[in-house]
Design a protein around this nucleic acid. Structure first.
Lengths: 109, 109
DNA sequence: ATTATTAATCGTAATATTGCAATATAATTA
DNA sequence: TAATTATATTGCAATATTACGATTAATAAT
């Protein structure tokens, strides 16, 4: 045990859960907020901005990249990360439709 | 190690990450979708609906309750769960403002 | 009172995540 | 080429999560 039984759920449910998991850590929230604010940034900035070790930041960046939320372009020895516009929009719309499926009116609890 | 260093982050970042974590599992997404659809439901329904064991569903329900996303009222031997309207609205608005902080126009990647 | 029904809790095993030091890789500069 | 700089990867330890059987608690029905 200890492994999520993804086969029990729909593609949509697993996808939404994975997207949520990608942002389910304050460091990754902080990274995304920094990317949004500065429009782009390099890995080293984040190590200073956030107090975590370089290896840890790199790991969080990879998770965000794997989830498709950010992309990086090589600039010399540095790597310039930024939000992935299309996937960000998709994330936003998937969460929106999830949240909006509930209209608070007729709750019988 | 293995423990998230919450002290490095703002209240807002930790809160958003925790809310994301609450929905970062397909079973919890499925439970919420079922609650949205049926307006209310009991634990036993979910055990049939989803293929997980009763103890596992109960555990997921507690996580959703701890995050404030659902509430339950006792009805005889059963417990009737439903979405927590105010907290759902808060969740929705926090995610909205997070997603909308990024406007896709000026990305320089 | 005893028995059924329903859900929560406990205990435990398996797996995942978080974090970092050390090392490796890749591009730049002297 | 060698040294430097910046990031990725590896290996490992600590902690968290997921899942479920067994048990418990609380109410309902007989």
């Amino acid at each position: 045990m200890g492994v999520t039984q993804t086969h029990l759920f729909t593609e949509e449910q697993n996808e939404l859960a994975n997207l949520a998991k990608a942002i389910a850590h304050p460091a990754r929230i902080a990274i995304l907020q920094h990317l949004v604010k500065t429009k782009s940034c390099i890995n080293g900035d984040l190590v200073l901005e956030i107090g975590l070790a370089q290896a840890t930041i790199s790991q969080h960046l990879r998770e965000l990249k794997d989830a498709g939320l950010i992309q990086g372009t090589i600039e010399g020895t540095k790597i310039n990360y930024c939000i992935h516009p299309e996937n960000w929009a998709r994330l936003k719309s998937e969460f929106s439709s999830f949240f909006e499926s509930y209209s608070a009116c007729g709750s019988t609890c």
